[in-house]
């Protein structure tokens, strides 16, 4: 097989209002580039990247980008089910997009059930907020909301790259942590978490139900 070596594969989904910057965030994370011009996402789009968590375990992230327009939810909802994490994305310079976050969160929870996803609240366009003073959502307010709801929070810029890596790393690390505590398991018929192909050693320890794995897989 020619696939890159990885120990786990996680599926994450990005949701949020139209033009908050979901695709640009993904573009930067997977490509290291800022897309000055990007077409609206129609339906769903797909990205992937390999990252390492703290103990050196290699995780392949499958990333689903979604259209923000309301009517596409009938399509995007089928992608929720197989996600283990969701990035709730808003635009720091667009108040309404932040106010809609609770709705997006509910939507995600409802469709991901019975699984309990890891959420991160991700503010976009930090560069714009800083340079032209167009901030409409304060850091404190977003942080308070995140704490109340048990979410990670980070403010990012897909232009300068600030914190983009963190946004995905936080979620990945937490999912990995939950695997190690035994809260998450690899399940047949669910693609949120899958084991990699090339390291049979790491394959089965979490198939044993509810037994927390203390070993690292690498």
């Amino acid at each position: 097989m020619v696939e890159p070596i990885f120990d786990y594969q996680f599926r994450l989904i990005l949701i949020g209002d139209s033009t908050v910057g979901k695709s640009s965030l993904l573009k930067y994370f997977t490509d290291g580039k800022f897309a000055e011009l990007s077409d609206p996402t129609v339906g769903v789009d797909f990205f992937a990247r390999l990252i390492e968590v703290k103990d050196g375990c290699r995780i392949k992230l499958q990333l689903w980008d979604t259209a923000g327009q309301e009517r596409f939810r009938s399509i995007t909802k089928s992608y929720y089910r197989n996600s283990v994490g969701a990035l709730l994305v808003y635009d720091i310079c667009n108040r309404a997009s932040f106010e809609h976050i609770p709705l997006w969160m509910m939507e995600a929870k409802r469709h991901i059930e019975p699984h309990r996803p890891v959420f991160a609240l991700v503010g976009c366009k930090l560069d714009l907020a800083n340079s032209s003073n167009r901030r409409e959502v304060s850091l404190e307010e977003a942080r308070a909301f995140a704490e109340q709801n048990g979410l990670h929070h980070v403010e990012t810029s897909a232009k300068s790259g600030v914190n983009v890596e963190d946004a995905f790393r936080l979620v990945t690390q937490e999912v990995y942590g939950r695997i190690q505590t035994g809260e998450y398991k690899v399940e047949d018929g669910w693609d949120g978490i899958k084991t990699g192909f090339q390291r049979p050693g790491g394959l089965d320890f979490n198939l044993i139900e509810a037994e927390p794995a203390k070993s690292t897989c690498c």
């Binding site: 139209s18 033009t19 000055e36 011009l37 990007s38 077409d39 609206p40 327009q69």
Partner: peptide, 13 residues
């Protein structure tokens, strides 16, 4: 509103 958002990013290349 949505049309404005999308005109701003359709075939800008």
């Amino acid at each position: 509103r949505q049309i404005d958002l999308d005109v701003n990013r359709t075939y800008r290349d």
